[in-house]
Write a protein that binds this DNA or RNA. Structure first.
Length: 476
RNA sequence: CGGGGCGUAGCGUAGCUUGGUAUCGCGUCAGUUUUGGGAACUGAAGGCCGCUGGUUCAAAUCCAGUCGCCCCGACCA
């Protein structure tokens, strides 16, 4: 039975419009009066809270502490690291007036907090005993963007930014990769999104970083989305901000630094990886509501009572449940909660009560089954979550693997990019070739993946000797 | 920042060419009947027609300015 949602544009018809429809209709966000600044509605914010819960546990397991630093950076401080300033200056929002006075040192609303952290570190790191410093901050940052889209690119977005200081480059580099692994694991265990891990090219790396790594996700329309980054800074910021400590050997030394972050852009990834023509599809472990119970003929004797009983049972066992006992029709509720992507639906009507079972339906593929109400019910529901999660991950992984095309010439590159997904090619490492591809095909180097298995000798752009396997794609 | 489009009720819109006090649908509220894939009927509330100024007896409509949003490019998590 094909049942199609009438309020959401289909993905094939207009993917951009589909995306906007889902954001609005699933009540994740609303537009505000100011371009690029969105309202995170309770349901959208709750997804972010699940991500926070997951990451806070992982961060704390690995010894990180949460802190909070100011919203604003005085301009003179911001200007200390040259590359960093050049990278961010074009998109900063600056406060110039306080009350009625014009400010002497203007206040930059943080686009990222490397300057603030490094400056603070210079005050608190004096001895090798103060290292490592492993800090994380949950906050929002502001970057003036020309083109904005909900969750994908906004003038303000919510994120976490980790900032750490280490005694040695080796230790700092390990941290950079450790955090990338945590992000990757989050994709596998929480978001059901397979990421491609890799290193950014010189052209694509973060302003001021020596090395940038990223996790890249593939959207349903074949475009890539950078979903998280980690950076190794060497001692560049340390030197610029004068962070020095006295080591065991009595020498003054500069510590080595990292930073890493994921943002509410992850919500965009979830939408565009898993969503379908009926709306959002949420993986169970990140879903703010995991189960929605819909009573059928709820004025009939015992229906609501049974619904409440099941709700309480699941809730007491740590399942996030909503019972919709509003007077909307069941059909309306089915559509509504599919639009909102709730992974598992339970229907309870007079017929079910008679037979002592529940009807359960998976959002991802609408598979429907009857589950007997017995002492093992909670475990059965939890197994359903596992099954749904695995289904969603496998589906996304198949799509990702299917999208990778090995290419050996510019023609093949163009064809692969037009098809969508990743074009895997050998590359000489020269930025000119990156620029040429950008210009010709509007695609960028997403990353130099960790899996480096060469399959050709020359760069198809310039014909010179190839150094790396690299993935190109059109990206958000 | 270039090119295009659009601002009328919470949302989507008609009206604008040819000035005369705003149309329709969805939603909202109340009531009754309904309920296994977006229910039906009856009644009701809701508008500085983006903003400012001008023309006019009279402006959603004409003129000027201004603000904002959306789409496509260049820049970016």
């Amino acid at each position: 039975m094909e049942i199609k949602n009438k309020e959401i544009t289909s993905r094939d018809e207009d993917f951009a419009q589909w995306y906007t429809d889902v954001c609005k209709k699933a009540e994740l966000m609303d537009y505000s009066e100011v371009k690029g600044f969105i309202i995170y509605r309770p349901y959208g914010y709750a997804i972010w809270e699940e991500i926070q819960n997951y990451l806070n546990k992982e961060f704390k397991k690995t010894g990180h502490e949460n802190v909070y630093l100011p919203l604003v950076i005085n301009e003179s401080l911001f200007n200390k690291e040259k590359e960093h300033v050049e990278g961010f200056a074009p998109e900063t929002l600056i406060a110039t007036i306080g009350g009625k006075e014009e400010l002497q040192d203007r206040l930059i609303i943080r686009p990222t907090s490397e300057c603030l952290f490094t400056n603070h570190f210079s005050h608190i790191i004096k001895s090798y005993r103060d290292l490592p410093k492993l800090y994380n901050q949950w906050c929002s940052v502001v970057r003036r963007e020309k083109t904005t889209r909900p969750f994908l690119r906004g003038s303000e977005f919510l994120w976490q930014e980790g900032h750490t200081m280490h005694a040695t480059p080796v230790e700092a580099k390990e941290e950079t990769l450790r955090m990338l692994d945590i992000y990757d694991k989050m994709g596998r265990d929480l978001l059901a999104i397979p990421f491609v891990k890799g290193r950014k090219t010189e052209k694509e790396k973060f302003a001021g970083a020596e090395e940038t790594y990223s996790i890249e996700a593939l959207m349903h329309d074949g475009k890539a989305l950078q979903s998280g980054t980690t950076h190794y800074f060497g001692d560049g910021f340390s030197k610029a901000f004068g962070v020095q400590y006295l080591d065991k050997d009595g020498a003054l030394k500069y510590p080595y630094q990292t930073s890493w972050g994921v943002s509410t852009r992850l919500i965009g990834s979830i939408i565009m990886v898993h969503g379908d023509d009926n709306g959002l599809v949420l993986p169970p472990y990140v879903a703010p509501i995991q189960v929605v119970i819909i009573p059928i003929q709820m004025n009939k004797e015992g229906v609501l009572k049974k619904c409440r009983e099941i709700k309480e049972l699941l809730e007491n066992n740590g399942v996030r449940v909503k019972l919709d006992d509003s007077d909307k029709t069941p059909g309306w509720k089915f559509s509504e909660y599919e639009m909102k992507g709730i992974p598992l639906r339970i229907e309870i009507g007079p017929k079910d009560i008679e037979k002592n079972h529940l009807v359960i339906v998976h959002r991802v593929d609408r598979t429907k089954e009857f589950v007997e109400i017995d002492d093992n019910l909670v475990n059965k529901i939890k197994l359903e979550f596992k099954e749904i999660h695995e289904k969603m991950y496998k589906k996304a992984l198949a799509q990702l693997l299917d999208s990778v095309t090995e290419i050996h010439s510019l023609d093949e590159l163009e064809a692969a990019l037009n098809k969508g997904g990743y074009a895997k090619m050998m590359w000489c490492g020269d930025v000119d070739c990156e620029n040429k591809i950008k210009e010709l095909y509007q695609a960028t180097a997403r990353c130099i993946p960790f899996d480096q298995i060469p399959f050709d000798d020359v760069c198809p752009v310039c014909g010179k000797k190839a150094k790396y396997v690299v993935l190109f794609a059109r990206a958000y």
